[in-house]
């Protein structure tokens, strides 16, 4: 049974159709990488899954519940989906610890002591144990992005969406963030990543999806998409 099912989703901004009937199923523990040119609709698809955008047609199901149902409560659904953006979006007026514990405390009703213990455990696991009391502007880009991932994890989401989490980082910092994602895959987290890091996508993904102008042109295991792409548009994107 699929954890997430995307069924014929359309999204348009004014006259410009950004998603044109996208279909996709994601199994539990599966890691899906979205690749495609800039403007192909990767971020828009992730934002639709997280209900930050309303779809114009089609439906999205999480655990067989239709989350695009207009009667569904978006706040309740977002509790089950974590998202990390390209720019870190940490809350600048809160310490790292408060950034991480805010949603567990206020949304999930976890006691402050328990939320803090869990946050410290996550920080230690990802090599940031000494940064709990620090404010985000005192962290490097890679550290900020790792905190953003931890913040999304702290609510124990069913599904984690990562939108080009390394594209604002310089190459030496990319690896520390990719390391975090690798570890999450090992722990069984279901993830959808939009990325321009092809070698990383090949390495970590169970499924690669190639988006072109809002259409899911081709998808399959990394070896198939990268080595023997069937669609001419995929070939052109990968080999120029």
């Amino acid at each position: 049974m699929a954890l997430l099912t995307i069924d014929g989703v359309w999204k348009r901004y004014q006259d410009h159709a950004v998603l044109r009937g996208v279909d996709l199923a994601v199994a539990p523990h599966e890691v899906v990488c979205l690749i495609g040119a800039s403007g192909s609709g990767k971020s828009t698809l992730l934002r639709c899954i997280n209900l930050l955008e309303t779809v114009d047609d089609g439906a999205i199901y999480l655990d067989d519940q239709e989350i695009t149902d207009v009667r569904a409560d978006p706040d309740e659904i977002r509790k089950r989906i974590g998202i990390v953006f390209q720019a870190y979006n940490l809350f600048p007026h809160m310490t790292v610890l408060d950034n991480i514990t805010l949603a567990p405390r206020k949304v999930h009703g976890v006691t402050p002591a328990q939320a803090e213990a869990q946050a410290r455990e996550l920080l230690a696991r990802f090599g940031l144990a000494d940064k709990a009391a620090t404010y985000p502007d005192r962290l490097s880009g890679g550290q900020q992005q790792r905190v953003a991932i931890i913040r999304a994890l702290a609510t124990n989401p069913r599904l984690l969406l990562l939108d080009e989490v390394t594209s604002a980082l310089d190459p030496t910092l990319v690896n520390e963030v990719l390391g975090v994602i690798r570890e999450l895959k090992q722990s069984g987290m279901t993830m959808i990543l939009a990325t321009h890091e092809m070698s990383f996508a090949r390495d970590i993904a169970d499924t690669i999806c190639f988006l072109d102008q809002g259409t899911l042109v081709e998808h399959g295991p990394p070896a198939q998409i990268f080595d023997t792409p069937q669609n001419p548009r995929t070939r052109e994107f990968l080999y120029g």
């Binding site: 930050l52 979006n89 809350f91 949603a103 999930h108």
Partner: peptide
């Protein structure tokens, strides 16, 4: 606006 988006995506009302 990205601050609101980040907060809403964490499930905050």
């Amino acid at each position: 606006p990205s601050q609101r988006a980040a907060a809403r995506s964490l499930g905050l009302s």
